[in-house]
Write a protein that binds this DNA or RNA. Structure first.
Length: 649
RNA sequence: GCUUCUGUAGCUCAGUGGUAGAGCACUCCCUUGGUAAGGGAGAGGUCAUCAGUUCGAACCUGAUCAGAAGCUCCA
């Protein structure tokens, strides 16, 4: 057989040759240093036979980072072996530890176990120690192929492995990887020897995970680890985790007094404190302005509705698990509103509509309630009661594209306003095999094509995810990444032919006949709660002036400056700016410090000099940096702040 | 909802079976200062809740409630 090297040179090798054979053919030194390889761009190890005619490239200890997923996977095996030894040292028989899957993942690896007794996080350093021992032993990691029958025989003691092996086709040979006394069923690839594995790893956490990800299956213990080619990369990663902790909206939300969650009120039901309310109302005002410009009309609907309403819309049937239970009043049943759309449909239908009236754009900051599983609740980002910046556009089919593009434009404007650049557009389409979707296939096709066409027209990068649609129509979601790399769904746009059908709404066309309108559901923020949660982390609490709940702190140097400070405060307040005077008996340094810790963007220091000349000295913290200015004229500064406020910059 | 872990003052945390502590914040007094902590005094807790074990429980056991990480779910 032959393979090709990166320089295009052809290398002739015996049949069934591996990357190691190729390395040896080039030189003994390379064979010594080789860790893994790629064949036709796919990572492989040194022991797997190469495909005929492959373009290969060897990865050596000079650039182990290229084989990250390989050594992470191998470290996963080392961890798995270490856990086995740990339990053996505790006196359990070797086969007491059973194993689920253990892949490499972003930044590291995990392994699922069925353990004879739970493993606590405080035991992880001990496991790490054994892992380092295993690396120190320099065990060869050898690949072997066996038949399905042999595999079943060897792993007969482990029901999880038996299940995995049984699922493989009968004629397929199954690969094992062995290092010392540890053998695991594994497709590979792996490093050639435990001694060549990087030591820049750390076991981070343990948790439960359902076998094969199914809620109905038993739960296994999962141990997570992170690993990098160098200690520097590991340190940087751990530093990023620390940064994420510092930015955590739950921590900042408490420190900056933005919101609180009180068990007596109910879990998942956040209380907006005065500071958080300012922030939220600024967001709402911003969007209302935009919507006014774009011809939306405001509506207001109640927080509960007759069960029949949600039966008509289908929300009751389709989301029975995540609705709050109905309330019986007299002999009727009511439900907490899980969605605003049914109410808006009824508003549309409250009078006859002409084709001339369309599009009708009904907007509401509507609060909805959904019964989220208790384990899902998380600060502001996952709650049971939240307010959507919801709107429904009822239009003719010939208007759909323009309306959709306008909504897309609005959403992009929103994201840009907050400097959210790491955004992914996700088109959720119907999975034809799933039966939860309502409406006929032709309408679905129409709606899905329309979305994809619009996104392409705007030239946004997008991915299509089948099965991600709402039950009534496909959707376009905006997914942003936070500092930790976690993805959050923010805004959404959905095209819906089905609700108009279910509610039998219509308009009178040019021809005098009844026609069915199309609906667009859209929420650029998604939910105010989640959006604010993400904004807090996005800005790390250092909000731009227009969003900062506390915008200006005036620091009088001594008590005799309090009156001047108060005079400035009143003027700023009159101009619509949020200013306060720190007239505590603290020293000026302490007042400055407290204002800094409260992340107030503009601190005005006033003393004798300032008072005489109607000036202030400043200390400013803006998203683009901090600065100080001395002897600034007050009126000039006020104008500057107002300009900054009004322009939302 | 499931698995593991956690719950002590407003916040951050110490306290391994013998009647509860620190720092910050808070209140009062002194201090009146030039860009990140001036000094002193005081107040504040059924140790999440309930039950059990014990002569005795913040500490051990169980249940409940709440939180965290992950899994599953998200119109």
């Amino acid at each position: 057989m032959h393979v090709f090297l990166p320089d295009g040179k052809q290398l002739d090798l015996p049949q069934g040759a591996t990357a190691l054979d190729a390395a040896q053919a080039i030189g003994p030194r390379l064979a010594q240093d080789a860790l893994a390889a790629t064949a036709n761009g796919v990572l492989t190890d040194l022991q797997t036979p190469l495909p005929e005619g492959a373009e290969i490239s060897l990865i050596t200890k000079k650039n182990p980072g290229q084989a990250q997923s390989v050594f992470r996977h191998s470290l996963g095996h080392a961890m798995s072996q270490a856990v086995g030894e740990y339990y053996e040292r505790k006196g359990y028989p070797r086969n007491a530890v059973k194993r689920g899957v253990g892949p490499s993942i972003e930044n590291g690896f995990y392994q699922d176990f069925d353990l004879p007794e739970p493993l606590g996080e405080e035991e992880l350093p001990e496991i790490e120690k054994i892992m380092r021992e295993i690396i120190g032993r320099g065990l060869d990691i050898t690949r072997s192929e066996v038949s399905k029958a042999q595999a079943l025989e060897q792993f007969g003691f482990d029901p999880y492995k038996v299940e995995l092996i049984s699922a493989l086709p009968d004629d397929e040979s199954i690969t094992f990887y062995t290092q010392g006394e540890y053998v695991d069923l594994c497709r590979g690839p792996h490093f050639p020897n435990t001694g060549k594995l990087p030591t820049a790893f750390k076991l981070t956490s343990t948790s439960g995970a359902y076998w094969r990800g199914n809620e109905k299956n038993p739960i296994l213990q999962r141990v997570y680890g992170v690993a990098f080619a160098s200690q520097k990369e590991l340190d940087e990663y751990l530093e990023r985790l620390e940064e994420a902790k510092r930015r955590d909206h739950r921590k900042l939300g408490r420190e900056l007094e933005l919101f609180t969650i009180d068990p007596l009120v109910g879990k998942g039901l956040p209380l907006w404190l005065p500071n958080g309310t300012v922030l939220r109302e600024e967001l709402a005002a911003f969007l209302k302005e935009q919507q006014f410009q774009r011809g939306y009309q405001g509506v207001i609907t109640p927080n509960i509705g007759n069960l029949e309403l949600y039966k008509t819309s289908g929300h009751y049937q389709n989301y029975s698990d995540s609705n709050f239970s109905p309330i019986t009043v007299d002999d009727e049943q009511y439900m907490l509103k899980p969605m605003n759309c049914p109410h808006h449909v009824r508003i549309y239908d409250s009078k006859p509509r002409s084709y001339r009236d369309l599009p009708v754009r009904l907007a509401e900051f509507g609060t909805v309630y959904r019964y989220e599983q208790s384990g899902e609740l998380n600060g502001l980002t996952r709650v049971r009661g939240f307010t959507q910046d919801d709107a429904h556009i009822f239009c003719r089919t010939d208007q759909l594209k323009k309306e959709f593009l306008d909504v897309l434009d609005l959403t992009v404007l929103v994201l840009r306003t907050f400097g959210m650049n790491d955004v992914r557009f996700r088109v959720g389409t119907r999975d034809p095999a799933d039966e939860k979707y309502v409406g006929d296939a032709a309408n679905w096709q129409l709606a899905e094509d329309g979305i994809i066409q619009a996104v392409e027209e705007v030239g946004l990068p997008y991915s299509i995810e089948p099965g991600d649609a709402a039950f009534y129509g496909p959707k376009l979601d905006f997914v942003v990444k936070d500092v930790l790399g976690r993805e959050w769904q923010l805004g959404t746009i959905q095209v819906d032919y089905n609700l108009p059908e279910r509610f039998d709404i219509s308009y009178v066309g040019e021809d005098g006949q009844d026609h069915r309108p199309v609906m667009i559901h859209r929420a650029p923020f998604g939910s105010l709660e989640r959006f604010v949660g993400i904004l807090i982390e996005h800005y790390a609490g250092d909000f731009p002036l227009w969003l900062a709940p506390r915008q200006i702190a005036i620091v009088p140097i001594a008590d005799r400056h309090n009156a001047y400070a108060e005079e400035l405060r009143a003027e700023l307040h009159k101009a619509g700016l949020r200013a306060e005077v720190d007239d505590t008996s603290n020293r000026m340094q302490a007042k400055v410090r407290n204002a800094e810790l409260s992340k107030i963007p503009m601190i005005l220091v006033v003393g004798d000099k300032e008072q005489e000349a109607r000036q202030v000295s400043t200390r400013e913290r803006w998203p683009d940096g901090h600065r100080e200015r001395k002897g600034v004229g007050f009126d000039e500064l006020k104008a500057e702040l107002l300009e900054r406020y009004k322009s939302r910059s």
